[in-house]
Design a protein around this nucleic acid. Structure first.
Lengths: 195, 195
DNA sequence: GTCTATAGCAGGATAGAC
DNA sequence: GTCTATCCTGCTATAGAC
């Protein structure tokens, strides 16, 4: 029997997260109301509180899940045997994954200040762990003489900023394919680290 | 005669912009109330409307002024005679200016979506004009054979993202001086463009 | 030019019916 | 699990006294 209202707990939770992510990315966390999220999902505002204790916890859940999936995805990538191979994999992985999850990436950069101190520290820790992955590649490459940078920490920050920047201008169906963009950026990174 | 309340139009206007900039950068445009800004300035909320027609116009004024000052400052820089000299000047200028105006830079990246369509277009135009300055340097360098990039447009975006990223981690009094950071980044940029 | 006061509305979150 | 109704708070912006 069809009915207007009923139980949908398995589907409503994910839909709330998806719509919240979309709305937060588009308008900003503070500018989006619980009523707007509820309307996008197709439920009443009160129903959201069955799935999250409050608005901030909803944001935290989105950011934490994203960062954990980013790290998990990177860890399943085949490791390059040589340092330059590992670096190329990182460059391509970062661009590819970030374009695939552009909404969540955007949130992770823009909405950190809306987290409580404790929750901020958690996300910050995950971000640092990811950055360390790249820095270790650079250090290993430097030690092996496969590349040469003035400062591995600064090179790490520079490369990540450069790669993440792709998200600000890349549009599907534009002038260049994702793969071409990855290749061009890999070329610039390779040269930048003196390899 | 001293008095508690009175005329301060010459000083209140700039103070409103300064406090609004600080608060918007720290908490986000949507999360800051007109009451908070007024309290920081030391006036009542109603008084703000003598200086701005509404909250969005206040943000637009901050962003527009910043972008215009950025372009004006760049245009007063001595131009390099050779392409590589010009590129080095751009790199050092961008890092230096952005660190000096970190609040406004942050706003210009984070709060664009809180502008009306028309105001957004104005800021976007100024940003594009600035990017074009770098792209012209790269094109000239490419034509002169002083450097080699796969794509000047992508190299422009990559370099700007990389340089602007300094703002996310640089802290005065940290491990490296501003000048050292500029030199390290210039080294990476120079190599990245194959010079 | 600034103040106090307030109109008019929207927000987060909860209570209790179904 | 969802809905309706509501509490309480805070917001932008304006009116009118000083």
């Amino acid at each position: 029997m069809a009915r207007k209202t009923g139980s949908h707990s398995e589907i409503t939770g994910p839909r709330i997260r998806a719509e919240a992510s979309r709305l937060f990315a588009r308008h900003g966390f503070a500018a989006v109301s619980m009523r707007q999220i509820a309307a996008a999902v197709g439920v009443q505002a009160g129903a959201l509180y069955l799935y999250t204790p409050d608005k901030e916890a909803l944001l935290f859940d989105l950011l934490k899940t994203h960062m954990e999936e980013l790290l998990a995805a990177w860890h399943t990538e085949p490791k390059g045997a040589e340092p330059l191979e590992a670096l190329e994999r990182f460059v391509r992985f970062h661009i590819g994954f970030n374009l695939m999850r552009s909404e969540a990436v955007f949130l992770s950069y823009m909405e950190l200040r809306n987290l409580s101190e404790a929750n901020f520290a958690v996300i910050e820790g995950l971000r640092r762990a990811y950055e360390t992955e790249l820095e270790e590649i650079l250090k290993a490459g430097q030690a092996a003489g496969a590349l040469s940078v003035p400062d591995t920490k600064l090179a790490t920050m520079a490369i990540i900023a450069m790669l993440t920047g792709v998200n600000t201008w890349y549009r599907e169906g534009g002038r260049l394919s994702r793969d071409t963009v990855e290749t061009i950026y890999w070329d610039m990174v390779r040269k930048a680290v003196g390899a």
